[in-house]
Design a protein around this nucleic acid. Structure first.
Lengths: 244, 244
DNA sequence: ACATGTGTACTTGTTAGACAATCGAGAAGT
DNA sequence: ACTTCTCGATTGTCTAACAAGTACACATGT
């Protein structure tokens, strides 16, 4: 009969020197997310509420809230009265996700280029990628995500950022797959990001949008191919591009 | 000590002849939404969990879940350990919302025009608006929303629809304001929708996107002006447009 | 008078345990 | 073999409770 310490103890964490309090449901959701990204929880794996509750030593309502959060993010799926399962991303879902990304991001690039604003966060993120050129491919995922979200956030529209964030979990899941399958070279990613930033600075919005389409299209079709789908022509490197 | 009937009774409702089961939290959230749209719950009105729980005769966890749903939709705001309040849309939020809409919808129009697909749902919605030309302005909100969501859904991308739905509650709130303030003529709305559909059918994506920008820009700036903000030039009717 | 500390009421975060309703699958009957 | 029934597992919801945080009034000290 352990004394059941921390009944309402909000977990506290240092984040870049500043303090941040996260609720327990957030903490549980966060860890589940990581386990899904890492592949520890495979596609279609069932996640019972009681199972989650006992394994994290929290009450069932808390576990329930965490699960519902992930369902809202698209990482889990479930119907009424049915147990939640890890989302199974088929080739059509992957195309869906990357198309939605391209939708938002290409328009963002046009606007950023028109204003010639190069987001500092994106520059830093790409520097971080460059520093990882020889490291584990999975480490690239975090700065890569940061690069793209920095671009989105730079337009300064709270709703647009929110729309993107409703996609971000699935995007990250795709990226993790791409990286763990070694589908893209880190140097190529970094070089294309760099080129995007230069095009923004030069005010060439349309060209930036096109490059982004290539950038995303290649990742998309290679991932689709690796999942057993039929790859489109975007999977190949266009001739004469920078980066080995 | 009333016998506490329906402990887990999911409410059932007839919806257009078909049956639909909605959970209690959904039902409560739904009603709160209506009360916010109708203005019964004014901006910055506080919504205590216990208050909601007692007034709807549900348990507090249920009320909590409902509130969290509306927070996720942007209709309510709240910080940790603070009571939820009805979101207060200032002029800058209105611009934010309409800009995000334009972002998504203009790109959608281009794609629909390229494929020359005129969504049947949008056509029907605009017919419904036409039938309401002389009715109460607030009745226009529902078919107007339906018109725009039909366009979005017509691209057939689940994620894009989801992104738009993360915006839809706030958009509807703005529309309700516009209509209850009589800021736009029903005939004008209907005529511009009609023109949009025709442009799609003709494959003129760019022109459709521009018309949409006018359509949204006018509503946006008039609403901003009505809220005490400074209206931009888009508030005026461009010369030589159809509709009185 | 002003800033600071204290305290109390209200509200939220979380837990525990319980029961009804529903779903899925295996068992039983035709 | 196909349908129907029953049973366990799981979810939806409820009640009751306590800890922890917030806010505002009040008292205190300088």
């Amino acid at each position: 009969m352990e004394t059941n310490t921390h009944p309402c103890l909000l977990e506290r964490r240092f984040v870049a020197g500043r303090i941040a309090a996260v609720s327990i449901v957030e903490a549980v959701a966060s860890d589940l997310r990581l386990r899904i990204f890492s592949g520890e929880l495979p596609s279609a794996h069932a996640l019972t509420e009681t199972e989650v509750a006992t394994s994290y030593e929290v009450a069932r309502p808390t576990a329930k809230a965490s699960i519902e959060k992930l369902v809202a993010e698209g990482l889990l799926v479930r119907g009424v009265h049915k147990t939640a399962r890890v989302a199974d991303l088929g080739p059509e879902s992957v195309r869906d996700i990357y198309l939605a990304r391209a939708y938002l991001e290409s328009e963002v690039l046009r606007r950023l280029a028109a204003a010639r604003t190069v987001p500092a966060g994106a520059v830093q993120a790409n520097r971080d990628i460059a520093a990882l050129a020889t490291g584990a491919p999975l480490d690239v995922v975090e700065p890569d995500m940061r690069f793209h979200t920095s671009l989105i956030d730079a337009v300064g529209n709270e709703r647009i950022s929110r729309m993107y964030s409703s996609l971000v979990a699935e995007v990250r899941l795709c990226m993790s797959r791409v990286q763990s399958l070694h589908l893209l070279d880190t140097n190529l990613i970094q070089a294309e990001h760099q080129k995007l930033l230069e095009l923004i600075e030069a005010g060439k919005g349309e060209e930036a949008a096109q490059l982004l389409d290539q950038h995303l299209g290649r990742a998309r079709e290679r991932l689709v191919a690796a999942m057993g789908g039929e790859a489109g022509p975007e999977a190949d490197l266009p001739s004469g591009l920078a980066g080995q």
